[in-house]
Design a protein around this nucleic acid. Sequence first.
DNA 1: ACATTTACTACGTCAGGCGTAGTACGATAG
DNA 2: CTATCGTACTACGCCTGACGTAGTAAATGT
Lengths: 112, 112
Amino acid sequence: MSNISSDVIRGYNDTIILYLLLQHPSYGYEISKQIRNLSDGKYIIKETTLYSAFTRMEKNGYIASFSSDENGGKRRTYYRITEAGMEYYRLKCAEWELTKEVIEHFIQKEDA
Amino acid sequence: MSNISSDVIRGYNDTIILYLLLQHPSYGYEISKQIRNLSDGKYIIKETTLYSAFTRMEKNGYIASFSSDENGGKRRTYYRITEAGMEYYRLKCAEWELTKEVIEHFIQKEDA
DNA sequence: ACATTTACTACGTCAGGCGTAGTACGATAG
DNA sequence: CTATCGTACTACGCCTGACGTAGTAAATGT
């Protein structure tokens, strides 16, 4: 009960990542920490899931990568969201509302 | 936008089916129609998805099958939910509330 | 009589998530 | 000064659930 089944979130990892990139360009480790923090530790994305999402989304043109210009720290790959990514994000948000509505027809809330 | 991406619902098909079996024992075709009706045609489950869910859930002990006793109509395989199935359903409902909360941290509602 | 609806089964493919493992660099601690 | 920890990844391969395609067959509608 403490953390979340991966099948649930399947297909929404991309959306989650895009939301964070919508705020500002970022990179794997930071995104990972932000997901954990924003979800109060309820969702901890797996590294492989995260990085393969980057690869997939870059291929799809939803994000674009660029290297950090050696600002003292370690070399990293940053990603920024593209126009297509924003459009995709908007679509997924709309879809989410619909899906949520559908699923909730089949869910019983219990306070027992 | 008219209907729902399957990846979203992935992992919740079982829950949806269990909800319907919780009302009364049923069989493939009926379940299928009920899902369509209850979702206002927004979600139409694929036959293969449905029947493989039956198989999987029976193997897991969440549902049990029995044959119709030839009441005039065609021979069918009915399923009823088991105790384990009810327990699983309850778990998934609780998980859903959690997951919904998590995902909504990353969703922007727009009325634009 | 013929098409459509009902009620399935079989088979194979695909994508996303994840386990496991390994690399490599910088910072901090003892 | 060296070991460990945190940071920042890449590679490989497996597993599961969803789904496309196809086929079977009885009952029902026209």
